[in-house]
């Protein structure tokens, strides 16, 4: 339990770092560390496949994409953030943390007991047998993403008179 809370705190802290750090590359890396924490939490909750996906795809692939973008846009792209943003954040964060804790505490009693029958079968069976439509939609999402990238990075020669 304590380990779990530590992991969750680590996830939140690295996410906050990802937002507050000035250097974009460092921000992307702390986002990857946050993903790593999330992946470990998934493992401990009994979701190994999701954990592997989180670590390999989100911590790996998405970080690479972020780093690539940072590298491509590096030249004189310093953006001056308002200084107040970083200074005020801890204040807002602590206020929200207190509100969050109070709200969750008041909810604790109100949630009805939930029906939860144990599942049978393996992960592959569940994904294939009961979430087949999601696989179709996944194909659609991937297709949309690929086509979007193709359209946004098309060569200028193919652009006709505009």
């Amino acid at each position: 339990m304590i380990i779990q809370i530590l992991l969750l705190s680590g996830l939140v802290i690295f996410s906050i770092l990802a937002i507050l750090l000035k250097d974009l590359l460092k921000a992307a890396l702390s986002l990857a560390v946050a993903s790593l924490f999330l992946g470990i939490i998934f493992f401990r909750l009994g979701a190994p496949y999701a954990g592997v996906f989180e670590i390999s795809v989100v911590a790996g692939l998405i970080t690479v994409l972020f780093a690539l973008t940072v590298a491509l846009t590096r030249k004189d792209s310093e953006v001056q953030e308002a200084r107040l943003t970083r200074l005020v954040f801890p204040l807002f964060f602590i206020i929200f943390l207190i509100i969050d804790a109070l709200v969750m505490k008041s909810f604790l009693q109100q949630v009805p007991a939930l029906p939860a029958g144990p599942e049978t079968g393996t992960f592959g069976e569940v994904l294939w047998k009961s979430r087949t439509f999601d696989l179709v939609a996944q194909l659609g999402v991937i297709l949309a993403g690929v086509l979007a990238v193709l359209a946004l990075f098309r060569k200028k020669e193919e652009d006709k008179d505009e």
């Binding site: 086509l147 979007a148 193709l150 359209a151 098309r154 652009d159 006709k160 505009e162």
Partner: peptide, 10 residues
């Protein structure tokens, strides 16, 4: 705009 095939695909 040109690039019809990709447009239609999207």
């Amino acid at each position: 705009y040109g690039y019809q095939a990709n447009f239609y695909a999207l």
